[in-house]
Design a protein around this nucleic acid. Structure first.
Lengths: 239, 239
DNA sequence: TAGTGGTCTAGACCACTAC
DNA sequence: TAGTGGTCTAGACCACTAC
């Protein structure tokens, strides 16, 4: 797993910004100077800077130069979801802090809605999993997940108690392509009241999502529900 | 405003995907073939395809080729917020359908929280605006906006009744750099009940955001509140 | 007028995949 | 072994900015 040159350049410039060597609102050296310093072509420097611009570290203005952006007030509370959160709660919060109760774990043929969401025909079975994710033992997320059996062979209760995502990544060697999410506020159901210890009139934040692999196949349709006072969802939107 | 070559190529390939000339899940021609067809270099084709991959239209696999992604079930209800919505409600829904009631329009020195959110010192005045945005006359979003006066000179009630964003873009010629958003579910306040016609126990979806310009200056801190049954927030997250 | 970042080229070498 | 996309180069021309 060798680092490419543009990754090396991007990592180093990012480090200089984070450590204050390139202070917020200052101009960084121009692309030709950086190309000389790193012994790469200007195109390679540009590719590194393009990535940093997408991450929100810098902005480039043709004719003027490249500026360091003031760090966005990323006062992300530790339980907030980062923008690109696709790697599951366990990775986000650390393995020790997250545990999962399995509320139900079934297999069946998908109904019309799930067929559409997962892009499956009716005769392809899906897992139907409900878990309560706990953080330091407090109930945190009530997660209802559908996954095509054919893409996730060998799922066991043991895996469900830990991290599905780690199983997908490391054991099945699957790679994510992207996710489509929809965030709602909704009313607490008796289910929420029972498992999330929500009050009758507590609002619930629900994240509904479809996740697909880098080969384009849909791997998951799920809803994740939180009590309104335990979590927000954050998005960083550049350009 | 001439189109660049890679934009031309991207637009044409996007058109072929949308019209079905390149069907979902099929391989599109390789980069060399496309380069020949469009009379451009392979790097230019690659740049076009990189953009389409970020938009979620295709995925590329080294050694194999470039595939058309199945269209994500973008069953985006018309009132949902698209992922990159930064252009204001008026542009999103069309000028005819959106009107605004001005609930309050003040100027003052920013408190500590607003100073931090807008990266201002205390002696720089800010507008403090509360508007009720209506869609086809129904109350829709209760919007509380702070903006630095020095960046938005000449704001009037007339502008507030229409679209602030159109004023920023077309009259002041400002360009957005990005936004940081935080989405919450929260309890209805008496204010929500009065203006959004929310019931006492209706959950509220709140989008809190900081918007900055392409020169890195923060232009807006705002909260936008909706009744839970009128709007979701959607995010497309690639790779 | 000198300096900036954006675009574009023609060619090279690479790792990976399928056969 | 042939074909794919990824990376990288050295150089060119451009529009735009500041002086």
């Amino acid at each position: 797993m060798e680092k490419t040159r543009y990754q090396f350049v991007a990592d180093e410039i990012r480090r200089r910004i984070v450590t204050g060597k390139y202070p917020a609102k200052s101009l960084i050296p121009d692309q030709n100077t950086l190309a000389e310093e790193f012994h790469v072509s200007r195109m390679t420097v540009k590719k590194a800077l393009d990535g940093l611009a997408r991450e929100g570290f810098i902005y480039k203005q043709s004719g003027l130069g490249t500026y360091v952006l003031g760090i966005v007030p990323l006062q992300t509370i530790s339980r907030d979801s980062p923008a690109g959160a696709i790697d599951g709660l366990t990775k986000q919060l650390g393995e020790d802090r997250v545990t999962s109760d399995i509320i139900s774990f079934d297999v069946g043929f998908p109904n019309a809605d799930i067929q559409k969401k997962l892009d499956l025909t009716v005769n392809r079975p899906v897992y139907d999993i409900i878990r309560l994710r706990r953080v330091e033992n407090d109930p945190f997320i009530l997660e209802h997940t559908y996954m095509p059996v054919e893409l996730v062979p060998g799922l066991t209760e043991n895996i469900l108690k830990g991290s599905i995502y780690s199983y997908l990544h490391h054991s099945l060697n699957l790679k994510f392509g992207g996710a489509y999410r929809k965030i709602h506020a909704s009313l607490a159901t008796p289910f929420d009241m029972k498992y999330l210890e929500a009050g009758e009139h507590d609002p619930i934040l629900e994240v509904e999502e479809i996740v697909w692999l880098n080969n384009g196949k849909n791997i998951e349709y799920s809803t994740a529900r939180n009590r309104y006072d335990t979590r927000s969802y954050t998005v960083l939107d550049i350009r």
